[in-house]
């Protein structure tokens, strides 16, 4: 009975009782953190001399562009424009 109560409750009440954050935003937040980690990795590799200055510039530019795209999409989801 208890199992049925717990399992079937959302069918009666709808899923609204649980915190329903936007899934896409959560995925973008995760993607953003992963991108930041990549940028930091590249910085560390540059600091350790594994990447040349030119390679680092190229890589860093690409990664930051990708991060910016993610941020744009995040703000678009929230209906906000970029401000300082």
């Amino acid at each position: 009975m208890l199992v049925a109560l717990v399992v079937l409750r959302p069918l009666v009440e709808g899923p609204g009782r649980e915190v329903e954050e936007d899934a896409r935003r959560a995925e973008l937040e995760a993607a953003k953190e992963a991108k930041y980690r990549e940028i930091r990795d590249a910085e560390l590799d540059r600091g350790m001399g594994k990447l040349s200055a030119e390679d680092h510039r190229t890589t860093d530019r690409e990664l930051r562009e990708e991060a910016i795209e993610i941020l744009r999409e995040l703000d678009a989801l929230e209906g906000k424009s970029p401000r300082g």
Binding site: E38, D41, A42, D45, M48, G49, K50, L51, S52, D55, T59
Partner: peptide, 14 residues
Amino acid sequence: LAWRRITSSGLRRA
């Protein structure tokens, strides 16, 4: 090694 590529000087140093 670094992601994407490592420089030859970096490789020697490493």
